[in-house]
């Protein structure tokens, strides 16, 4: 039985890691970007990495915009949860509330019309939960903080394309969407560009967000056609000269991750979602025996 007490501990750890601790793959990608740059872009990236190291060390927020609070949960089909699956949402909300009152999260989430501030980032659909069922008895919890800049300017941009437009239409839309998102440093580039292709528009949008927030840098889609597209788009975007905070440079994107769904013969939805250069996410696994920190969500392992 996974007790509420241990589940709460797992949620707390995921939120803390997600908000403060730069993942190893992002750290290495920023380091590689520093090596490639010179001039002001190199200095800017150095300062960004230095600040992130302090966050890691002192448990401070990686950015004062602590983002839209999002949970992605891989729930084992045979997992025994005290209080049933509904306990997951109760405990996740409690973890967000406490992290906010502790100062790990900023009081960011407000009513969209009245501006009412609940003071703890908890309200209707906040935090957001995405639950995926997987074989086994364990639970994996990922907390991803989608920053205001990355979501407002580089959250879903989508287009329904005609089959007639083919791969040219898809590639051109993605490149133009990223240029528009990263202009003047709006999404805090170099970001992680997630792309969703196929499905209904909202499915493509979900895939894009998950590809941006949950895949590790360095991973490639297992199907060669998409792996090739990822590499081609990374090279193309890095040749644009957008650079860190949009001020010019050789690294405009840390990675491009593409996920897809089959689509209706009527058209192809293409969606992009960008995560910022501090790409915050923390993943933990809770088993009957232990609570462990994972290097990434491995969200698409069941694709």
């Amino acid at each position: 039985m996974l007790t509420k007490e241990r589940l709460k501990e797992a949620f707390d750890l995921a939120v803390f890691r997600g908000a403060t601790y730069l993942s190893e793959d992002v750290y290495e990608a920023l380091q590689r970007a520093i090596d490639r740059e010179d001039g002001p872009a190199k200095e800017g990236l150095r300062r960004t990495l230095q600040s992130l190291e302090i966050s890691r060390e002192k448990g401070l927020p990686a950015c004062p915009d602590t983002g839209w609070p999002l949970f992605f949960i891989k729930l084992g089909n045979e997992a025994q949860i005290e209080g049933g699956v509904l306990a997951l949402e109760e405990l996740g909300r409690q973890a967000i509330r406490e992290a906010t009152l502790r100062g790990t999260l900023r009081k960011t989430m407000k009513h969209p019309i009245t501006g009412y501030d609940p003071g703890d980032n908890v309200s209707d659909h906040t935090p957001w939960f995405d639950i995926k069922y997987v074989p086994g008895k364990d639970i994996e919890i990922t907390y991803a903080a989608k920053g205001g800049g990355s979501e407002v300017f580089g959250g879903t941009r989508h287009q329904m394309l005609a089959f007639a437009d083919g791969l040219d239409g898809i590639r051109q839309f993605i490149i133009d969407a990223y240029i528009a998102s990263a202009r003047a440093g709006a999404v805090c580039p170099p970001g992680i560009l997630g792309v969703g292709i196929g499905g209904t528009a909202n499915m493509a949008a979900d895939l894009a967000k998950e590809a941006a927030c949950l895949r590790r840098i360095g991973s490639r889609h297992p199907e060669p056609v998409f792996a090739k597209l990822e590499q081609e788009l990374e090279d193309a975007i890095n040749a644009l000269g957008i650079g860190h905070m949009g001020a010019g440079g050789r690294t405009s994107v840390l990675a491009v991750h593409v996920e897809y769904s089959y689509t209706h013969i009527a058209g192809v939805a293409v969606a992009t979602s960008t995560n910022c250069c501090v790409a915050r996410r923390g993943t933990v696994r809770l088993t009957e025996e232990a609570l462990e920190i994972l290097p990434g969500a491995n969200w698409f392992e069941t694709r």
Partner: peptide, 21 residues
């Protein structure tokens, strides 16, 4: 960036006059 964008699309083999439906 707009100039580089045109070069990048060209290098990917996307025709200059390509317009999505």
């Amino acid at each position: 960036v707009a100039k580089k964008r045109d070069l990048v699309l060209k290098s990917m083999g996307i025709p200059e006059d390509f317009t999505p439906t």
